[in-house]
Design a protein around this nucleic acid. Sequence first.
DNA 1: GAAGAGAGCGCC
DNA 2: AAAGGGCGCTCTCTTC
Length: 702
Amino acid sequence: MNLLPIWSDRVAKSKAVETCTSFNLGLRKSRNYYAADCNFVETPEQAQGMLELAQQRPLSHIGFDTEFRYGRPGIRIDKSKIRFDPLSIEPLLMSLALVEPGRDDRDFRLYSFVVDLRNPDLWFAIKGILSLPVPCCAHFAKNELFCLWKLGLPEPRMLWDTFIFEKLLSLGRHHHKYNLSRESDDSELVKVKEQAEEKREFGLSLVATCQRYGVAHGMEGEKKRLQDSFLAHHDDMPFSAEQIRYAAEDAKVASILYPLQIQKAVEHSLLRHCETVEMDWVVTNARIEWEGVRIDLKKRDDAIHRISTNLKVLKHHLVHQHGIANSQSHKQLRDFFSRHGLLEQFRNADKFSFSRENLKEKQSLHPAIPLIRAVRRSSDLLSEKFLSPDFIGIDGRIRPEHKQLGADTGRQTSCWPNLLGLDRILRPLVVPAEGCGIGEVDWSQVEAGIAGAVYEDEALIQMFNSGDVYSSMAQLFFKDELSAEDLTIEGKEFKTKHKSLRNQMKTCTLGMLYGMTPSGLARQLGTTKAKATRLQKRFMKMFPQLQNALLEASQFGAIRGYANTISGLKRYRGRSGKSIHWEKNWLINHPVQGSAAVVFKATGNRLRKLYTQYDARIIIPLHDAFIFETRVECLKEVAELTAQVMCHTLQEYFPVLRPLVEVNITRSDCWNKDGNADELERWITSLNELMEVRLSSDAEAE
DNA sequence: GAAGAGAGCGCC
DNA sequence: AAAGGGCGCTCTCTTC
């Protein structure tokens, strides 16, 4: 499919093309010849010339960018957002800016090329250049990676994403909670918030980044128009000189930003984190998005049908027996419970709360309550974006957007649909490709271990290393109440025998890492504040080193202005001065959650590379678990490899830990939790039972 | 009619 | 005075 057309006069006339008319293959390339202007590459000879120049010059790094369009209309998310299926990307141009350093910072040479990606005969040169052992820099490189993969080309050997770096620098600075505590009148508050929002949106863009670093972007005013011109570009249409210049410009500025960002990275001690974890994860993350997950459409439609049939019956019953037309309406529930004199049961300070938790607790007060709960759950499930046909690609796979550094702790987030937050009941709708199976490996209690390691608490480390951290904890904490035998049994056995004691420890631990107060703990454990206070005090006594380290983390972090992780990844405060309660909490939590995210990414990067030997891929990165897909016959081996890499990588970062992982390949025909592949069926059955009881008791009453 | 706040659900 | 870290997303109700 050689698309080389007769280019329009405009392109032919452009100086760029004129300077590229003749080549002496194999001869030494003239620096000045290429450095003169942007070179448009449209023949294999020109591509060869470009590649040879790149191989001959002592390059320091390369800026690159792609222009593309989508072959499929996108899904409108809201007024300003459209989601395109990555698979439908159609690469048009790739621009390259080869940088050759000179005597000092200001003296460098920049060779600028723009390659027509519609011509497959030119791809070899792209492949050759991007595999050079020099960093290739792009702003939001995910799109460039998609273009490369669409053409069947490998990713660059070394990648630097100028967008991701800017995001690292801004981590935590614009958290929405900072907007809320401003003292000003309402209209002003709204304005301030809007401005902050705009700033954040614009702030990480290439143009804004250039402005911050004092880099001139030649075409900043025309960016939007030209970007759109590619989205609407027709197949056989030649590119305008302006389009080509624009493509070249983005690669150029990315290459100029790189050394400036490196300088900044050194100042923020982020360089190591970038080079060992974050920039490699750009590729891993993009690959996960590119792979997507396969959906069993029949299973999905069946699920929708069954849930909605149930919902109809439940709703009907709720309206006719109890007069609740809409159980999602706070007002209607208030009226209903008021009518039955039960409203006070749901009081929470000066408001009323009909939360799931609250309703569950008060379940026996009225026969309508279980129905309300069931209706809520059913409609929540049915309104999952995940069930919408909009997001299914042409190959039957869903590709949610995976946002790198979506959370201020450095964690990933996902959206459209939010796969990471998918209700576990719906997980089995995710199925493997033909001939493949799905496996999952997760770290056991990893955050407790990391907390022990980053805060250097020997007691916590030792409990983590014993196998089941919460069982060991309970054995020490309740040592006076337990029998001699119970003090020595294995964690696993203890877990089943003394579930409630162990759960108390779990709540205390998580509460400690999240900065829970005695009243919060009391609510969690269903006890009084006084008891919770005593419990918490006694609990903390088990970990004196930790207690001290937590205090230091929040106090020093507040002064320093950021919380740190094992690799130097930072979360910054949005302001200075005395820290508020919430800030104290995350200053303590970030080193744990953030370090866990770092280890997770480092592990994922290794897995991605090792998986290529097995025709395996990560399909879901779940904070402390990897869900992968591979050929059925490799499943066991890949699971073992995954388990090993997970343990080893964690130990590399925290040599004091002896981590354990849980492997789940028992039901490889779908994604599931602990091998439970039929949660949906069981839930529906339990609903039906509930309905039968309800209906028969009503019949009796009549 | 659009947009935002608040409540509430789900996930780790 | 309130007091659980990090998210995405939907629904209701109010406001402009």
